[in-house]
Design a protein around this nucleic acid. Structure first.
Lengths: 222, 222
DNA sequence: GAGATCCTATGCGCGTCCTGATCGTTGAAG
DNA sequence: CTTCAACGATCAGGACGCGCATAGGATCTC
């Protein structure tokens, strides 16, 4: 998750970067609208944190956001400002912003709002798992797609693939898989797993699931 | 769309609830900050309507809002107060509020502001939601159009479709839907959802709502 | 009090799940 | 290299559970 912070006050900028880095985001820093625009065009950020008042002018942050939107940048945008009137907020939101935070703010609030934004943005963030060969698994929407094609999986098929995808390095025995995915009192033959592996392979027409002979299964590589 | 009203004056509270219920929101009522905090932590509201002056103190509404924000509650917040000075407004917005309404107010204004807020939060820039297959949802009029045909939906039907349409990528379980759309004191069987899905499909003669067997429902594709 | 809406209950039909059988593959011993 | 046994892949079929749709009563609205 990559975040661009555009903020000219070095103190606040440090604060933001340290906090967000600690939360696991990859942060870049820009100290002016010009620098911010350049970076935003170069890298695929998930979120832009824009201070409204920048060296280029009192509304430079808004203009930057608006301009980037018009250039087709779809990243989420959040404005930071010291001015909190209603008109101000409306202006920011109409400039293509997704959220708005008034300084001074508690870092906890910023964190909460960022998480809410990323969550709201749909299948992104923690809800999507990328698998080998360009497959993407949307855990929220319970679907699997690649290059526009959508593959419908049943509950069991999906659960199996999800388990393997969440631990890409691990190999699972059939009994382990059953222990994790089936409720405790269920007793099924270990061979059931073979069947689901088979149907997933047939539906995707791909060997997303790798066989470890004599052991079990694992998510495929590359 | 679930709304929590925190207001100690029974007269105003009734007025708000009746009006909003008529507009299709499901409202819960709290008569103190303490009660409001409890409910807000328990249920996934879309909007909190907070009276500023509550039994706990002259600023209790602000404190409640601020506290909930710091706890990571991301619901929209709108304050209601009799005091309309500039300092007051700033205080409210700094307390994590999204909008502000000074009593006495016209219900029309409240309605308009709520719709504007929810619209922005939902990411859509207009008063209408576009759905697959050329359907358009008119959020103000509780109706659905396609190519000149108009389909009337009841309150529940509309709320269900709206929820799914606002999160097109997400799959919802029946219990999730009930948690989001039904007010707290309602306890209904999860199968109710089936009935509404059924009637929406019959009225539209289209599978706007997709079934995920074993999981729940999701907005249909293309 | 009439009509709409909301919720529960009840069969019916179909998809999903699991089993067992058959065929194909792998790898090691002879 | 050949043979053979163990393992994995795939298919067909039956049981079951889930979702669908209707009817009908309770509740709300006007």
């Amino acid at each position: 998750m990559r975040v661009l912070i555009v903020e000219d006050d070095p103190h606040i900028a440090e604060l933001l970067r340290d906090g967000l880095t600690e939360d696991g985001y990859d942060c870049d820093l820009a100290r002016s609208a010009a620098e911010g625009a350049e970076l935003a065009r170069l890298f695929p950020y998930s979120l832009l944190l824009l201070d409204v008042m920048l060296p280029e002018g009192i509304d430079a942050g808004y203009h930057l956001g608006q301009q980037l939107r018009e250039e087709g940048i779809t990243a989420l945008m959040m404005y930071l400002t010291a001015r909190g009137t209603v008109e101000d907020r409306v202006e920011g939101l109409e400039a293509g912003g997704d959220d708005y935070l008034v300084k001074p703010f508690a870092f906890r609030e910023l964190r909460a709002r960022i998480r809410a934004l990323l969550r709201r943005a749909g299948g992104s963030a923690q809800n999507a798992l990328t698998l080998p060969n360009g497959w993407v698994m949307d855990l929220g929407g319970r679907e699997l797609h690649r290059a526009g094609v959508r593959v419908d999986l049943t509950r069991r098929e999906f659960a199996l693939l999800e388990l393997l995808a969440l631990h890409p390095e691990r190999a699972f025995t059939r009994d382990e898989i059953i222990g994790r995915l089936w409720s405790g009192d269920a007793c099924v033959e270990p061979k059931v797993i073979d069947v689901y592996v088979s149907t997933v392979r047939r539906k995707t027409e791909d060997r997303l699931i790798e066989t470890l002979r004599g052991t079990g299964y694992r998510l495929g590589r590359a």
